[in-house]
Write a protein that binds this DNA or RNA. Sequence first.
DNA 1: TAATTAAATGCAACACTGTTGCAATAATGA
DNA 2: TCATTATTGCAACAGTGTTGCATTTAATTA
Lengths: 135, 135
Amino acid sequence: MTNLFKNKKLRETPFRKEVLAIFTKYNNAIPLSIIEKELNEYNRITLYRTIKVFIEKGIIHEISLNGNISNYALCKEKCDTIAHYHQHIHFKCNNCKVIFCVEVDKIPTIKLPEYIIDQFEIQATGLCQKCNLIS
Amino acid sequence: MTNLFKNKKLRETPFRKEVLAIFTKYNNAIPLSIIEKELNEYNRITLYRTIKVFIEKGIIHEISLNGNISNYALCKEKCDTIAHYHQHIHFKCNNCKVIFCVEVDKIPTIKLPEYIIDQFEIQATGLCQKCNLIS
DNA sequence: TAATTAAATGCAACACTGTTGCAATAATGA
DNA sequence: TCATTATTGCAACAGTGTTGCATTTAATTA
């Protein structure tokens, strides 16, 4: 994945590598606060711009669930500068509060008489496997 | 609807009536900026607390679409202090940028092997009827 | 490898949003 | 009408988003 930055026409800097490494370490969506904790040292403006450019280039995507601060997760699909294409839903566990990107075979579609839909996003809340086993 | 506040155990104040009137005037979700423009005079802390308590009491609900500031819309269903129950999806028109709450007969369900889902929310983007006719 | 150039970073600075404690004010029920 | 309790407004602060500009660094070319 060394050439991810090159593919996206981004310069490969130590800071960007560090931030990317944090995203690959986690396999779920994470808020800024976790990224900040993982970084030994950082400049908040650079981090802000790094997140922004990662989203623009389709490296990560933002997940805004109502009442929650934004979370970010790696894009697994062929996202690019033009658009994000996701075959997954966003699931938030009400117990552990973790937000997962869950891959699904097909996103159910819905027809609306008065609207032309070109993208769907599904957010769900409930219990993740781990929390379900415990309770 | 005069007794809406009484039902929710909220005092009926001039300011709350004003804010509620703005919500009923619009038939789509609106951001804080529109509410602020509609109010002749307001205190931002009071507005902040009004929005907060309206959400808590199930009078309005918040809609956070990725990359957008929060929008708010009246709850049409039997929402209360405990939970919001919505039989609608949130649709954002890519052209006019308006966010609509679109009532649907049934929300499609999805089964995930490792998660127990208890609530769904669907967000869609595309073109609304008006913008579709124009283009 | 060194020089060039264009991008990325860091600083300063500001605006906006979210949030609390507390005193003043207003709505409700008796 | 009065007492009680919720609501409002002020002051104040923290956090986040954002920009311009000078400095530094990565990538490119000679």
